[in-house]
């Protein structure tokens, strides 16, 4: 993957967007959404750098468009899926079976053995506290309650909470999802500051 050009620029990017839609803004939306989904697909299927793999899928389509290949389908997702499968096969051929990215496992081990530096952990806790305090009180309680039960599937916790609060499970799940994303983004920003 290292020898590939990963970021489309200029005409190639414009042509790719034009392939996605004649409306450039709609095309950009489509690009962002498809990129996210392809990244997920590559992550699940063991691509070492899922974002790069997704970039590569778009690059290949852009090259085909620039080379004048007529792509007849209007189902862009399906076409990109086909390209993604080729890239995956190349990835699997390049990466021996079972050879997963070392870094996350290293980090996981360090999590499990609590090798994370005490200072770093303290800073993380301080940041988390700050981020939690930025939430409204009811949202803060909701997320704390959700995370306070171990050894139970979150699905069951969510069921109990939704019954008690009198709201649909789906609504609660979506609310937790948004709060989690908000906290995660806040934590990353705080730790980076």
């Amino acid at each position: 993957m290292s020898s590939r050009k990963h970021v489309l620029q200029g005409e190639a990017f414009e042509r790719l967007l034009a392939w996605l839609s004649s409306n450039p803004e709609r095309a950009a939306t489509e690009y962002v959404h498809l990129h996210q989904r392809l990244t997920k697909l590559f992550a699940v299927r063991g691509c070492r750098n899922p974002e790069d793999c997704a970039d590569e899928a778009f690059n290949r389509v852009a090259r085909q468009v620039i080379d004048g290949k007529e792509i007849r389908t209007t189902n862009h997702a399906a076409y990109l899926e086909g390209v993604a499968r080729y890239i995956l096969r190349e990835e699997w051929a390049r990466t021996p079976t079972g050879d997963v990215e070392d870094l996350p496992l290293e980090r996981l081990k360090s999590l499990k053995t609590s090798q994370t530096g005490a200072d770093e952990k303290e800073r993380q806790q301080q940041c988390l506290e700050r981020c939690l305090n930025q939430l409204p009180a009811d949202a803060r309680l909701l997320v704390l309650e959700y995370y306070s039960e171990d050894k139970s599937l979150k699905r069951d916790i969510r069921l109990r909470m939704s019954q008690r609060l009198g709201i649909e499970q789906g609504v609660l799940r979506n609310r937790i999802f948004k709060l989690r994303n908000k906290l995660r983004a806040c934590l990353i920003e705080c730790l980076g500051a």
Binding site: L103, L111, L128, Y147, R180
Partner: peptide, 17 residues
């Protein structure tokens, strides 16, 4: 747990927990 982004999610969930 193959990508750094997912490990970050685990770290966050651990801190929240």
């Amino acid at each position: 747990l193959r990508t750094a982004a997912r490990v970050e999610k685990v770290e966050f969930a651990q801190a929240m927990s």
